[in-house]
Amino acid sequence: MQLKPLARSLAAALSIVVIAGCSSTGGTQDGDSYGSQDGSTTGSSTSGTGTGSQYGSSTGSGSGASQQADSRIPEVRTIYFDYDRDTIKNEYESVVMAHARYLRANPNAQVVLHGHTDERGTREYNMALGERRANAVARFLNIQGVSSSQMSVVSYGEERPAVNGQGESAYAQNRRVVFNY
């Protein structure tokens, strides 16, 4: 049953490739690596040309260009959190907004929000913290007009770190919510 929206978005993605050659949004974010947060924020602000004026307003798709952008899944699919926090940081709001636009524009698209924590603290409590982060993103998307039926949440707690190792740089890359389509 997941196939239909998947096929749709595949088709959409393919058609985009044709147009992408002339679009400034295409391609630049490929190979985004963990921790290159600067890259991801600039990347997402590109895809959200004109977002500044759209903040808070419920209509996200103004121009033809952004409609094209909204027909493909945003490429930045991970946002990071501060220790013990579930607040979406300002620098990632544009990422979440891009996903909101995509989900609004594609009502058949489904996203699973995976919440993660760093390894510190107890496992089951971290499971709850990971869920809290994913729920915070779901609430944000909901406020942006995304239907609850398009979203689900799975917390992995500290069970699936993005990187192994101790220290703040590893921890920072593990405290995250990932958009899975």
């Binding site: 069970e159 699936r160 770190p161 993005a162 990187v163 192994n164």
Partner: peptide, 9 residues
């Protein structure tokens, strides 16, 4: 027990 990282564990 656990081995690996992220989606490959």
């Amino acid at each position: 027990t656990a081995q690996g990282v992220a989606d490959n564990m």
